[in-house]
Design a protein around this nucleic acid. Structure first.
Length: 466
RNA sequence: GGUGUGAUACCCAAGUGGCCUAAGGGGACGGUCUGCAAAACCGUUUUUCAUCGGUUCGAAUCCGAUUCACACCUCCA
């Protein structure tokens, strides 16, 4: 298994810390709003990584956090808390907001057939772990308190910014945000806030530094170490997390433990739209629900994501999504036919196995899903027994996650209701009597009812229009 | 201002020195099949990889310049 490691900026052979096991931590959603489809692209990438590691024989332990506290809206450390803002705007409590959007997120994940991480942990359930970690940093001399907040001092370590290859002197700190005058170094970041500018801040906890709430980055360090140990294999996220969030996570984690924290850093590229980066604040706020309302199957979007490599920017457009939908439907049609003709083979032949191997090789080569997908199509078009094709399809879908195994086989009499079946029979009779005008009328009627008539060698069948 | 990344045929998108006269998908067109369709199958849309120059026996792939686009330096997947 080869993976691109952001730390080394190169593709590396994956060597786990513990033989046969792979531990991965993925930055999860901040649940103050719906996830947009760009967010979801990253979770699809992580799902592919999870599935591919499993396929490769690793026992995967996948942890994802839910950020249900903190993360400010604005620039710098003085913006408004996103959760509080959302709560204020909707008249719900912050806890209700968090619950609502967490549920919405997992509903999207389910629709996209994303395997649920083995452990999903909420920040608000781990405040004590964060406090303990901050304390450890304090004991190690990596913190200072100013203006009521506890800061991490980046000058207390000598390799700050190594992931992003930041040249600290070149960064124009303060160019676009006001410098927090409490900070000794503009790149220092808050570990614990006691100094909320909002008197009615709802989420507050007691701590050795006073009643308050944790900074933005500490939760991932605290929870990942709690569940995966102080040295684990893989940490994932979106590329935007590299310069600040992951940089600060590394700084605090390695300062606390005194050793390397994560071996492989994997980042998913952005989904773009016409105007550039997809965002919650500008342009159309594209959620999975929006796509569903427009008649797309969530798996159309999953397929669309698979057609691009996770480390490449992918341009979203409805035209591109239409292409993905057409391709996926065509795939479903073929599989439906195959299922009507055969059962999956238990012992597929050499040719089928060669395609499966080529597919796995593509995935194990830094998750080259576009190439893997092309193997699926080549296999389908090749001259193989239907049973072998099905076996190969199921094997590949173990990673693609397009629910191909669950597709109903092509067969007469199992799709429409009694009315439709009666119409279909009437059409067959009309055809037999060479009353083609009537037969075509019935076909149009069935089309209006949402069915396509398909004449197959074994007789006419109805198919749901998708 | 600084730092990166990218530009591939009608569209999306792989490929990072020879197996590339560029994978795969989508669309369009023509054909086979069909009463007609749909589906399926076959063929075409491809000597071409932003532009210019260089390196090399050989470049989409390496180097340089140019143009354009995007991202990051700020919470963001």
């Amino acid at each position: 298994m080869k993976l691109y490691n952001t730390m080394s900026r190169s593709i590396e052979e994956f060597v786990p810390i513990v033989k046969g096991k792979a531990s991965m931590y993925c930055c999860g959603p901040t649940v103050y709003n719906y996830a947009h489809i760009g967010n979801l692209r990253t979770y699809i990438f992580e799902d592919l990584l999870h599935r591919t590691l499993s396929r490769d024989g690793y026992e995967v332990k996948h942890v994802m956090n839910i950020t249900d506290v903190g993360h400010l809206t604005g620039d710098g450390d003085d913006g408004e808390d996103k959760m509080e803002k959302s709560a204020r705007e909707t008249g719900r409590s912050v806890w209700d907001i968090a619950k609502f959007y967490t549920d919405a997120f997992f509903s999207d994940e389910k629709d996209l057939n994303i395997i649920r991480p083995d452990i999903v942990c909420r920040a608000t359930d781990h405040i004590q772990d964060m406090i303990a970690l901050i304390k450890r940093l304090e004991d190690g001399g990596h913190t200072y308190t100013a203006g009521g907040n506890v800061y991490f001092s980046i000058d207390s370590i000598d390799d700050y910014g190594k992931l992003a290859r930041l040249n600290i002197d070149d960064l124009k700190s303060g160019a676009r945000i006001d410098i927090d005058s409490n900070k000794k170094n503009p790149k220092d970041f808050v570990l614990w806030f006691t100094n909320s500018k909002f008197k009615d801040q709802a989420m507050m906890w007691d701590s050795p530094w006073g009643r308050g709430y944790p900074g933005w980055h500490i939760e991932c360090s605290a929870m990942s170490m709690k569940y995966l140990g102080e040295h684990f294999d893989i940490h994932c996220g979106g590329i935007d997390a590299i310069p600040v969030h992951h940089t600060n996570e590394i700084a605090q984690s390695e300062a606390a433990t005194g050793h390397t924290w994560v071996n492989y850093w994997c980042h998913g590229e952005f989904l773009l739209n016409d105007t550039g980066k997809m965002s919650k604040s500008s342009g159309e706020f594209l959620t999975l629900s929006v796509l569903k309302d427009k008649g797309y199957d969530p798996l159309d979007y999953r397929y669309f994501c698979l057609t691009g490599h996770y480390r490449s920017q992918l341009k979203f457009s409805y035209e591109a999504l239409d292409h993905a939908r057409s391709a996926r439907r065509s795939l479903v049609d073929r599989i439906r036919e195959l299922k009507g003709a055969a059962e999956a083979s238990n012992a597929p032949g050499e040719k089928a196995k060669a395609y499966m191997d080529a597919f796995d090789s593509a995935m194990e080569n830094d998750l080259s899903s576009p190439q893997a997908l092309s193997q699926l199509w080549l296999m389908l078009k090749d001259d193989l027994p239907a049973s072998d094709k099905l076996a190969a399809i199921y094997h590949m879908d173990g990673i693609l996650g397009l629910r191909l195994e669950a597709i109903e086989p092509a067969a007469a009499g199992d799709v429409g209701g009694a009315d439709e079946e009666r119409l279909l029979a009437e059409r067959t009779a009309a055809k037999k009597a060479k009353d083609y005008k009537r037969a075509d009328e019935i076909r149009a009627e069935l089309f209006d009812r949402g069915f396509i008539v398909r004449d197959t060698p074994s007789g006419p069948i109805l198919e749901k229009r998708v």
